[in-house]
């Protein structure tokens, strides 16, 4: 069995080092002008030092360019992708075709990972982007395990499939500044108010009082996040058997301590299973260390992995 990659977004050079040390095989970093919902900014200049460090530790670095791009941003893409290539970044994660065009024209040495968030939903469309040059599809979190397994099997030898296995997911992204708007609607000053992730804002739908949906605003608009955290740790062997190439732990809105604990548990589980699939037994302490740090108002769930949705 090919050992799957363990991937985590990092928000600073320090986090990059700490997450690599905790067992990450790959780090996702970026600049908020181009990447969405990152745990912090790692500008291209900082990558010139941080990427070689990561590489020395055998860890890959991917840059997030998954924003929906406007004309102004597109103008700056050629320079940015050249800087990323010069820093030695391994791959670019994109959703907008404008990024694909910029990489092919200005930094063809960068690998391309296609990630259209909620809309990367079938293997045939992934293979379309594969023919355009992408080597990996980042699958939508709303797919179930059967759909993911079929995707991986159809794309075998052609494209890798990356799946989020832990943490919260984005469930709504608007360009609108809805928190600013709401404050102003209530007749209060929005000037000087912080709507950033650190404030810990969350929504409670009036019919569902026990679920808390984090919400924050940044330069790219308003983001609403899931009320639960995916945790596929116990079921990781099923995903490995399905041929998933990369497992992502989402680090956003979580402490570095939490993320490091999650990385260590997933690292141990992957290593144990890959070393001896037949003799593998799940070690409960892997899960318990995560549970000990899990915020009490956020359930650990299987996301959509075992669900059938209707429409």
């Amino acid at each position: 069995m090919n050992k799957p990659e363990l991937l985590i977004p990092a928000g600073s050079a320090e986090q990059m080092a700490a997450y690599a040390e905790a067992g990450a095989d790959a780090l996702l970093v970026g600049d908020k002008r181009y990447g969405l919902r990152l745990p912090g900014d790692v500008p291209a200049e900082a990558l010139r030092r941080a990427v070689p460090e990561a590489h020395k530790a055998g860890v890959k670095v991917y840059a997030a360019l998954n924003h929906i791009m406007d004309n102004d941003t597109v103008r700056t893409l050629p320079d940015y992708v050249k800087e990323l290539a010069a820093a030695g970044v391994d791959a670019v994660v994109y959703g907008d075709p404008a990024v694909l065009a910029a990489v092919k024209a200005h930094a063809p040495q960068l690998a391309l990972h296609w990630n259209a968030e909620m809309t990367s939903t079938n293997w045939a469309t992934a293979s379309f982007w594969g023919r355009k040059g992408a080597t990996r599809v980042v699958a939508a979190r709303e797919l179930n395990l059967e759909e993911l397994a079929e995707m991986a099997s159809r794309l075998k030898g052609v494209m890798e499939v990356e799946v989020q296995v832990h943490g919260m997911t984005n469930i709504y992204h608007s360009k609108r500044k809805l928190l600013h708007n709401y404050t102003e609607h209530l007749g209060r000053p929005s000037e000087g108010q912080s709507y950033n992730p650190e404030r810990g804002l969350y929504l409670v739908e009036q019919e569902r009082p026990t679920e808390r949906f984090p919400i924050y605003e940044d330069e790219s608009g308003t983001h609403v996040m899931s009320s639960d955290d995916i945790c596929m740790l116990e079921n990781l062997p099923e995903l490995m058997d399905a041929g998933i190439a990369s497992f992502k732990i989402e680090s956003v809105l979580k402490s570095a301590e939490y993320n490091i604990a999650a990385l260590r548990s997933y690292r141990a589980c992957i290593d144990a299973y890959c070393t001896d699939p037949a003799g593998f037994t799940f070690d409960q302490t892997w899960l318990e260390t995560i549970q000990a740090l899990q915020p009490s108002d956020r359930e650990l769930s299987y996301g959509f992995f075992y669900k059938e949705q209707v429409y």
Binding site: R199, Y202, L203, V204, E205, Q206, I215
Partner: peptide
């Protein structure tokens, strides 16, 4: 739908 907005603050 209707939602209530809360500030959780940091740990």
């Amino acid at each position: 739908w209707k939602y209530d907005l809360f500030a959780g603050g940091t740990a």
